[in-house]
Design a protein around this nucleic acid. Structure first.
Length: 283
DNA sequence: ATGAATACCTGAGAGC
DNA sequence: TGCTCTCAGGTATTCA
């Protein structure tokens, strides 16, 4: 389940192993992984051939490889996407969807079990792909504007968890880090955005930032030179989650049993004592 | 304008 | 053992 920290680890891996290389060829093994490239798989391959990879950038959960002449390859890992680096003659991984051949005899391989992720060629997308112009800056972006976030959140009439999962308000937050930062603040997921106090929003932003940075630090430790890692099951998930997946276990702060609710077609984990459910949606 | 519902996907695991 | 069902959830799209 790659969220911002996992995607950042992947970006760092691309910087180490792919930036500076040129693309000698590409193969699309499953057209669904390039379905967001409207002109089709053959066009996608054709546009990559001979291009030089000059950088790797990220906004929220999107990342893109910056090519020569200001173009880019825009990527999203979805739920299960992975980038792997391997010698061209190494056996292919399970769920291999796209192969990009590099000029050093290695390959950048995109494997994705569930095909929620994918990639497309982004013309003039090196600075910011136009396809993701609607995605808000993420909390690790130096130009992220807390005041603007606060203003826009207050303008919504919705639950606070919906708001932080809305990638047009703040990007990079997924279900896991949403629950973790709401527990830390603490706030119940259904608290109405319109009635949040300034210090509650400030606190939430502080904790979103902290949980991202902690996860990033731990995600980095599982990085392997030959493996651009985006393993959602690694390190951080087992050791450091306070509420996500902890249904039935005692809250680390108060020992109250953590609960799980169905919410937005997914799960929300929360502590009934630390994060009391709002009454009438007013608080 | 905004929120809510739905489609897209595969495989692990539960239940029978 | 093998079948069906449920669940996992980020994003784009459609509907209200």
């Amino acid at each position: 389940m790659p969220e911002l920290p996992e995607v950042e680890v992947v970006r760092l891996g691309l910087v180490d192993h792919v930036v500076g290389r040129s693309i000698t060829g590409a193969t699309v093994h499953d057209v669904r992984s390039v379905r967001r490239h409207q002109p089709g798989a053959a066009d996608f391959v054709h546009r990559l051939e001979g291009r030089r990879i000059e950088g790797a950038a990220r906004r929220g959960k999107y990342l893109w490889m910056q090519l020569d002449h200001d173009d880019a390859i825009l990527c999203h890992l979805g739920m299960s996407g992975q980038f792997l680096i391997a010698d061209a003659d190494a056996p292919p991984p399970r769920h291999l969807r796209v192969t990009i051949d590099l000029d050093d005899g290695r390959q950048l391989r995109f494997a994705d079990q569930r095909i929620f992720g994918g990639m497309c060629f982004s013309e003039d997308g090196a600075e910011l792909p136009p396809q993701i112009a609607h995605i808000a800056r993420d909390p690790l972006d130096p130009l992220f504007d807390p005041a603007e976030f606060t203003r826009r959140v207050r303008g919504r009439q919705t639950g606070v968890k919906r708001a932080i999962l809305d990638q047009t308000l703040i990007s990079g937050v997924g279900n896991i880090y949403a629950d973790e930062s709401l527990w830390r603040t603490p706030l119940h997921y259904a608290r109405n955005t319109r009635h949040l106090r300034t210090r509650e929003i400030d606190g939430l932003l502080t904790h979103i930032n902290a949980v991202m940075i902690e996860a990033l630090a731990q995600g980095g430790t599982s990085f392997d030179a030959l493996y651009v890692n985006v393993n959602g099951n690694s390190g951080y998930f087992d050791r450091s989650l306070a509420v996500y997946g902890q249904e039935g276990r005692p809250c680390q702060r108060c020992d109250t049993t953590i609960r799980r609710d169905a919410f937005m077609n997914r799960s929300s984990f929360w502590c009934p004592h630390c994060q009391p459910r709002p009454r009438n949606g007013r608080f």
